[in-house]
Structures are given as structure tokens and as C-alpha cells.
């Protein structure tokens, strides 16, 4: 009940609706190009990965580019997509990978405690932030993850009974 007094905590509810709309739209899109009967395990795994990516992407895009973690997450998903495409074209892939590792600054990672480093690993884009910013982004990320979990639970609950 204490969260009612802080107006910033009531904000995620609007983010949550935006997120839900995006997620539902993404799921619809996924179901458009879905094969009629997915049987094989690898196919199902692939679809699970796609749904998960859709969940994260909708979360990040509903937050918008103002947050560093959302930007990083979208970039990561996009990179993964292009990586998947270029896995078929080997030469391009190696080029992309080296570029990505070069772009990632790891200055903060060397100093700082073990917990800090693992937190950096968990929050998208956390490698590049200073600790203050990291904590800020972590708070927002937690809120959004919670909203995401709620939305997904709601959708599943709708269809499981």
C-alpha cells in the first residue's frame, strides 16, 4: 500500500497497457506465419525463443528509447536477429561479431564488486553505465519485468480455463 503514495510507482500501469498491446500484436504477428501444426521439438523451441524475444522486445519498445536498458535490449535483439540471418552467411557473421565485441566498453567491469558485475550482466546495457545509473536502470527494469510477467500470466490465464 505504500506504493500508492509515490506517483512514480503508479506509472508502470500505463507502461503495462502499452506493453500488453505490443505483446499481443507481436503474438498475433507470430501466429500469422506459424505453421499449421508444429510437431518437432526444435520447431517448438524456436517458437518459444521467438515468443520470448517478442516479450522482451515489446517490453523495451513500450518503454521507449529514453531508458538505457531498453535501448540496449532492443539493440541486442536486433543483433541476435541479424546474427541468426547471417549464420547462413558465414563471412558476414564473423565481421559482425568482432564489431560487437569491439564496441562494448568494459571499463566498469574490472573494478567493482562481484555483485555489481553480476548485476551489470543481468541488466541490459549495464556494462556501460556507472554504478549510480545502473541502480536507477535496475529499478526501472525490475518494474517493467514485473509488468511483463503480469501481462503474460494474464494472457495464459485467459486461455487456460
Amino acid at each position: 500500500m505504500t506504493s500508492d503514495h509515490i506517483p512514480s510507482l503508479r506509472n508502470p500501469s500505463s507502461i503495462r497497457t502499452r506493453l500488453a498491446h505490443r505483446f499481443v500484436r507481436a503474438l498475433k504477428k507470430l501466429s500469422m506465419d506459424r505453421p499449421s501444426s508444429p510437431v518437432s521439438v526444435s520447431d517448438r523451441y524456436k517458437r518459444y525463443r521467438m515468443i520470448r524475444a517478442a516479450a522482451y522486445a515489446s517490453m523495451a519498445s513500450s518503454v521507449g528509447p529514453r531508458r538505457a536498458w531498453a535501448r540496449a535490449l532492443l539493440r541486442k535483439i536486433r543483433n541476435r536477429k541479424t546474427g541468426n540471418i547471417s549464420m547462413k552467411r558465414r563471412g558476414v557473421r564473423t565481421c559482425l561479431v568482432t564489431k560487437r565485441t569491439l564496441l562494448k566498453p568494459r571499463d566498469h567491469r574490472e573494478m567493482g564488486s562481484q555483485q555489481e558485475n553480476s548485476l551489470r550482466g543481468l541488466v541490459p546495457g549495464g556494462e556501460e553505465m556507472d554504478f549510480c545509473r545502473l541502480l536507477n536502470e535496475t529499478g526501472h527494469y525490475i518494474k517493467c519485468l514485473r509488468a511483463q510477467v503480469k501481462v503474460m500470466k494474464n494472457i495464459i490465464d485467459l486461455y487456460s480455463n
Binding site: 503474438l27 501466429s31 506459424r34 508444429p38 517448438r44 517458437r47 518459444y48 515468443i51 520470448r52 517478442a54 516479450a55 510477467v149 503474460m152 500470466k153 494472457i155 495464459i156 486461455y159 487456460s160
Partner: peptide, 11 residues
């Protein structure tokens, strides 16, 4: 887990 479950529900 939930996306796995969504996939299951979907299939």
C-alpha cells in the same frame, strides 16, 4: 517459463 507456456498453449 511463461513464454514456454504461451508456446504450449498456442500449439
Amino acid at each position: 517459463f511463461l513464454s514456454m507456456k504461451l508456446e504450449a498453449v498456442n500449439s
